[in-house]
Simulated assay, not measured.
Amino acid sequence: MLAFFKNIKGDKAIWGVVALLALFSFLPVYSASSNLVYVVGNGTNIGHLLKHGLLLFLGFGIIYGIHRIPVHFFKGLSIIAMPIVLVLLVYTLAQGTTIDGANASRWIRLPVVGFTFQTSNLAAVVLMIYVARYLTKIKDKTITFKESILPLWVPVFLVLILILPANFSTAAIIFFMVLMLCFLGGYPIKYLLGIVGSGLLVLTLFILTAKAFPDLFNNRIDTWENRIESFMNGEDIEADYQIEKAKIAIATGGIVGKGAGKSIQKNFLPQSSSDFIYAIIIEEYGLIGGLVLLFFYLLLLFRIVVVANGSKTIFGKLLAVGVGLPIVFQAFINMAVAVELFPVTGQTLPLISSGGTSIWMTCLAIGIVLSASNKEITVGKKNSVIDDTNPLEVLSGQL
């Protein structure tokens, strides 16, 4: 065990924050899973808790393994992984079935372990690494928009188009994160404005096509409209019901909350252990608990910025920001939905919510950030003459 802890490298504060969030998650997950057990009739509290624990245990295994990889190794991996991700997204979108009543175009089922896997989460991480690699490659170079279309924007829009029909919120978050990373990476703002316009045009054409030919392909246009309308005027019954129950949970939590496991609204609030777990946390632990949780995400954000600022390479800086900020951004969106600052998006609370392998993808991103913070690996490879823009040289030289 001591040898294991000696091999833990990287930013210790990030390790601490992630470990505390993961440990705390067992309390609200165990409490909120009673909705699945007694209302939905799915499994037992202990069963859901054990599943959550297994996912986190394997997730920390992913963090440990990934954080030991030299950061420049991810350049080559992103090129290799991008075609694989596109194939997985096509396969996921083409299923056209349902899993537990939900649109299966967002998940594939892993036959061996029995878990469902949301391929868009993997695609988001891989795409951010790929974009960071490209921005590093063109750093300090004068590049035209035409030159960047094929190597940068074609892969970005292919990923977004394959995610969009089944998961608008995830596609929107990825698009925003890519734009932010490109801005931080020095990509010309005038080109980014053109990309925003192009994105809005593609989205408009997609919506018009889906409305004109509703049987052409599976999509969630009506769901998007209902959620936005519900947010604007509260006319959608289902979404409005979720928000109202979440607000009741928050209001009755008060300053110190009702206590661990004593939530009432978990029995009425759909997705209480995933999408709306923040409302249950405030009901049980009060405003203090909600603010403490917010503080830890802000601390994680701060440490990600510290890691990016301290990295010795441009790629390390962009990589830490590219895969780290979406974790915190997703957490803020989940919290904003619970207090009705955002329409319902279906985004979980990272490292806290129960769920499938989305936990693993969060852990993958955290492992990459820790790799970028691992000074021993970075310094140890600083004299390498390998061309780390070439994936074949990276693979042959670093493995």
Rank of each mutant, 00 (worst) to 15 (best):
residue 370 L to T: 07
residue 328 V to C: 09
residue 198 S to D: 11
residue 164 L to E: 02
residue 247 K to Q: 14
residue 126 V to E: 02
residue 97 T to Y: 11
residue 197 G to T: 05
residue 59 G to F: 01
residue 393 E to P: 06
residue 151 P to K: 08
residue 289 G to I: 05
residue 367 G to I: 02
residue 8 I to R: 10
residue 25 S to Q: 02
residue 73 F to S: 14
residue 207 I to E: 04
residue 167 N to F: 08
residue 170 T to Q: 11
residue 88 L to G: 03
residue 37 V to Q: 07
residue 356 G to E: 02
residue 149 I to R: 05
residue 283 E to A: 08
residue 266 K to N: 05
residue 322 G to A: 06
residue 291 L to W: 10
residue 367 G to V: 01
residue 59 G to V: 03
residue 100 D to L: 12
residue 318 L to S: 04
residue 89 L to Q: 00
residue 366 I to Q: 08
residue 239 A to I: 15
residue 272 S to Y: 00
residue 312 K to T: 15
residue 9 K to W: 11
residue 272 S to G: 06
residue 48 H to N: 07
residue 158 L to H: 03
residue 291 L to I: 11
residue 322 G to V: 07
residue 243 I to N: 02
residue 361 M to E: 09
residue 203 L to S: 15
residue 254 G to V: 08
residue 354 S to V: 08
residue 30 Y to A: 12
residue 395 L to T: 07
residue 262 K to Q: 15
residue 220 R to Q: 14
residue 22 A to P: 03
residue 389 T to F: 15
residue 370 L to N: 08
residue 223 T to L: 15
residue 99 I to T: 05
residue 246 A to L: 02
residue 36 L to C: 02
residue 30 Y to C: 11
residue 195 I to P: 03
residue 115 F to G: 11
residue 109 R to C: 05
residue 130 Y to F: 15
residue 338 A to T: 01
residue 198 S to Y: 15
residue 381 K to F: 12
residue 234 G to T: 05
residue 254 G to K: 11
residue 346 G to I: 08
residue 233 N to P: 12
residue 181 L to R: 06
residue 20 L to D: 07
residue 115 F to C: 07
residue 32 A to P: 04
residue 26 F to W: 06
residue 255 I to A: 14
residue 151 P to G: 09
residue 50 L to G: 12
residue 324 G to H: 01
residue 179 L to Q: 04
residue 23 L to M: 14
residue 131 V to D: 00
residue 141 K to G: 09
residue 219 N to T: 08
residue 319 L to R: 00
residue 337 V to T: 06
residue 359 I to S: 06
residue 158 L to R: 03
residue 327 I to C: 04
residue 40 V to E: 13
residue 259 G to Q: 10
residue 385 V to I: 14
residue 301 L to E: 08
residue 249 A to D: 07
residue 263 S to R: 06
residue 48 H to I: 02
residue 31 S to N: 05
residue 394 V to M: 05
residue 66 I to C: 08
residue 122 L to T: 07
residue 383 N to T: 13
residue 361 M to D: 05
residue 156 V to E: 00
residue 372 A to C: 11
residue 171 A to H: 02
residue 169 S to I: 01
residue 39 V to A: 10
residue 280 I to V: 12
residue 364 L to D: 00
residue 352 I to M: 00
residue 133 R to D: 11
residue 267 N to H: 15
residue 239 A to Q: 12
residue 108 I to A: 09
residue 121 N to W: 05
residue 114 G to C: 13
residue 138 I to E: 01
residue 132 A to T: 03
residue 79 I to R: 12
residue 351 L to V: 06
residue 46 I to F: 13
residue 69 I to W: 08
residue 255 I to Q: 13
residue 84 I to A: 10
residue 167 N to L: 11
residue 232 M to I: 14
residue 172 A to K: 06
residue 4 F to M: 12
residue 11 D to I: 01
residue 193 L to K: 11
residue 339 V to S: 09
residue 36 L to G: 02
residue 50 L to N: 13
residue 32 A to N: 07
residue 140 D to T: 14
residue 135 L to I: 09
residue 152 L to G: 00
residue 131 V to Y: 03
residue 215 D to L: 13
residue 323 V to F: 08
residue 271 Q to Y: 15
residue 241 Y to I: 09
residue 286 G to Y: 02
residue 170 T to S: 13
residue 10 G to N: 00
residue 367 G to N: 04
residue 211 K to T: 12
residue 304 I to Q: 04
residue 163 I to W: 01
residue 287 L to Q: 05
residue 367 G to F: 03
residue 256 V to Y: 15
residue 104 A to C: 08
